[in-house]
């Protein structure tokens, strides 16, 4: 299953808080796509994913100050 979380316009740490919340409802192997435009989250979201042991399968800048990251639940 794949879930998309739109957090554009939300300031840190809300994108990360919402990502943690959304992750709880997913099963192992499910993908969570997080779209965000808060600069600090370019550091905090991948760090959280790595520390929790999830896999990051896609992480890229979409345009100026807009990013997407796909985290697969462990």
């Amino acid at each position: 299953m794949k879930k998309v979380l739109e957090t554009a316009g939300k300031v840190c740490p809300f994108p990360l808080i919402e990502a943690k919340d959304a992750m709880k409802d997913l099963q192992s192997g499910d993908d969570l796509v997080i779209n965000f435009d808060c600069t600090q989250a370019t550091e905090s979201i991948p760090r959280w994913a790595a520390e929790e042991g999830h896999t990051v399968s896609n992480y890229e800048a979409l345009s100026d100050a807009a990013w997407t990251i796909t985290v697969t639940k462990k």
């Binding site: 316009g9 939300k10 800048a61 100026d64 100050a65």
Partner: peptide
């Protein structure tokens, strides 16, 4: 720094923020 790194954009938050 932001402009040269592709991290500058006018970003409007919602009313509550």
């Amino acid at each position: 720094a932001a402009k040269a790194s592709g991290e500058f954009r006018w970003r409007v938050p919602n009313a509550k923020t």
